[in-house]
Simulated scan of single mutants.
Amino acid sequence: MNRLQQLFQKQQKDLLSIYYTAGYPNLGDTLKIAETLEQNGANFLEIGFPYSDPVADGPVIQASSKQALDGGMTLHLLFEQLKDLRQKVTIPILLMGYVNVVLQYGVEEFCKKCREVGVDGCIIPDLPMYEYEELYQPVFEKYELSNIFLVTPQTSEERIRKIDALSNAFIYLVSSSATTGSNLALSTQSSDYFKRIADMELKNPFMIGFGISDKATYDSANKYASGAIIGSAFVKNLKQDDLEGSIKEFMVQFSV
């Protein structure tokens, strides 16, 4: 089992995952942010590799991606930055980004590099499920990478069950159909959606993301899921001139 699978075997409640963009706010901050987040209580991390056309992302993540790209961030550089990852960080790490970047890099080479640096899995929202199953699943399994699928309020039960069968760590439950950074409004509709997924008794646990911004929305998500994923609110809080201080300031609200 990879670190991600081990984590979910050991703990299935109150998990906190943080997303941030590689190369933001400064090009060389990627590993330092991971270290500081682990020291301040994050259970696992999602490191975004930036792309020039991030269609699922809201303005905060889009702006961080543009700044990182303008600063020189590439997938090649990210893997170089992560070469000492496992000397400094012990919690599970996922890479998150768009399929075009992975295809340009080469799927097998990408998976191989993930394994070499100690990455445990990937979230590639625009990778079609059938392409993964027919073309790439053997490659991901060869390098012991978990591929994380997204479920939205519009996803059919048939597709959710198919995703559950293809998954081996957790399922990413998108809180709404909005882009990242939208505030989670815990309406009756969203509560019914979360409960509907929970009642399906899937073999994989699920994490709720999109719109989780603070302790209140994190706690609300935890009523239904194994935990929550915070991205835009964290990225927005990062201060270029006080990186560690701004991370600690953000994470203190989640400390018990």
Rank of each mutant, 00 (worst) to 15 (best):
R3A: 06
Q5P: 02
L7N: 00
D14K: 10
D14G: 08
D14Y: 10
L16P: 04
S17L: 06
Y19E: 05
P25Q: 06
N26E: 13
L27E: 09
G28P: 04
G41Y: 07
F44E: 10
F44N: 09
I47Q: 03
P50E: 08
Y51K: 06
V55C: 14
K66A: 15
K66S: 15
F79N: 04
R86L: 05
Q87G: 02
K88G: 02
V89R: 00
L95D: 00
Y98P: 10
N100D: 15
V101P: 11
V101H: 10
V102E: 01
G106R: 03
V119C: 10
D120N: 09
G121T: 10
I123G: 01
M129H: 00
Y130T: 09
V139C: 09
Y143P: 10
N147P: 11
N147F: 08
L150A: 08
L150P: 04
T152S: 15
S167H: 00
S167L: 02
A169W: 00
A169Y: 00
S191P: 05
D192V: 14
Y193P: 02
Y193R: 03
R196L: 12
R196E: 05
I197M: 08
M200R: 11
M200I: 11
F206Q: 01
I212V: 14
K215I: 11
N222S: 13
S226W: 05
A228N: 04
A233E: 07
Q240D: 13
D242Y: 07
L243W: 09
E244M: 13
E249S: 15
F250R: 08
V252N: 07
S255Q: 15
